[in-house]
């Protein structure tokens, strides 16, 4: 085991996949000598050369579009979108093209493509460096959407994404890049895309979360266990699409209470899907309101610290919501 930060685990995964498979290459803005603006590709151009770590033009739709074309004819691209906020110019290529290629060719052409993007707020990034965009893509069959919350999972899931025959969106909590640390096994391992992870066991209620909010939810669960004796189970979804419905439902059938935490805007966010799933398939286990703790419905995370902190869920707010729901 080696202790790593979230971003170190991501770099290590790409390093290993580049070494393993000659068909893997990376492209995106500043991924070359700069090593990425967050340094996720640091050291890779030195090791693998500019043919395999390719600085792209500053044009997201073509970063993805080129990736799709290269993927369908046999390469294994990892495309970096510098911030998830800038993925929208590529929306048509992701949603209209990558997601539909396999279906529209009746299983003849597949798109083994990874799109990595740092997402999320709490970093002073304002409206355009803070967005959570997962709900747009988790709506689209044909895509896979992965959001890890630990270095262990980030490395294993990213390696699995590179080997997956489908387009995988891999969203990385930028707030956790350096603040989330954890043990990573030394040898080769994969974490399968799909299964959720029980991050904390408990039987009083279930907290559903992913990415940065899963990290915060475990902190909050530990707080309320120690301070209030509340045993909150934390389900770290890890993969939003395809969703691990069994684990989601099984936990709820045990606890009968659900708090869903996400840092996207509340309305139409991914938490709504979890809530619908529970209401539809586990109604008879319901022992309280299904609650969502999320960002307010405003068009972005504001820049000023006071407003940003107001927007963002955090361990204290989650602990508060847990206590509230446990008392119901």
């Amino acid at each position: 085991m080696t202790e790593m930060t979230l971003i170190q685990a991501i770099t290590a995964a790409m390093d290993e996949e580049l070494a393993r498979d000659e068909r893997v290459f990376i492209t995106g803005e500043d991924v070359g000598v700069r090593g990425g603006v967050f340094r996720a590709t640091m050291g890779l151009i030195e090791k693998y050369g500019p043919q395999r770590v390719v600085d792209s033009p500053l044009a997201e739709l073509s970063i993805v579009g080129i990736g799709i074309g290269a993927a369908v004819v046999g390469l294994r691209p990892i495309c970096e979108i510098q911030f998830a906020d800038y993925i929208f110019p590529a929306f048509n290529q992701i949603v209209g093209e990558a997601a539909r290629f396999y279906y529209r060719s009746n299983g003849v052409w597949h798109v083994p493509l990874v799109i990595r993007a740092p997402y999320g707020g709490g970093v002073g990034g304002g409206l355009y460096h803070s967005q959570s965009v997962e709900a747009f893509f988790a709506h689209v069959p044909g895509l896979k959407v992965v959001i890890p919350s630990t270095p262990h999972d980030a490395k294993g899931l990213l390696k699995a994404a590179v080997r997956d025959p489908n387009p995988v969106l891999f969203f990385e909590a930028k707030k956790g890049y350096r603040s989330i640390r954890g043990d990573v096994p030394d040898g080769e391992y994969l974490v399968p895309i799909g299964p959720a992870r029980i991050a904390r066991e408990g039987d009083d209620l279930t907290v559903y979360a992913y990415g940065m909010m899963a990290h915060y939810a475990t902190i909050a669960a530990d707080m309320v266990r120690e301070q209030d004796g509340i045993h909150a189970e934390v389900v770290d979804l890890r993969t939003l699409l395809p969703l691990d419905r069994e684990t989601v439902l099984a936990s709820y059938r045990k606890t009968g209470k659900a708090l869903i935490v996400y840092e996207d805007n509340l309305t139409g966010g991914f938490g709504a899907e979890i809530a619908a799933l529970l209401a539809e398939h586990a109604f008879e286990h319901m022992d309280g309101p299904i609650r969502r703790l999320a960002g307010p419905d405003v068009p972005g995370v504001p820049f000023a610290h006071s407003m940003q902190e107001f927007f963002m869920p955090n361990p204290e707010k989650i602990a508060h919501a847990i206590r509230d729901l446990a008392a119901y």
């Binding site: 073509s62 579009g65 799709i68 074309g69 290269a70 209209g96 093209e97 539909r100």
Partner: peptide
């Protein structure tokens, strides 16, 4: 395979040429 959305295939072709 291409879609009905015009011009979407042009980046794919450039990607294949890149490959």
């Amino acid at each position: 395979s291409g879609s009905s959305s015009v011009a979407t295939q042009i980046p794919h072709a450039a990607g294949a040429a890149f490959a």
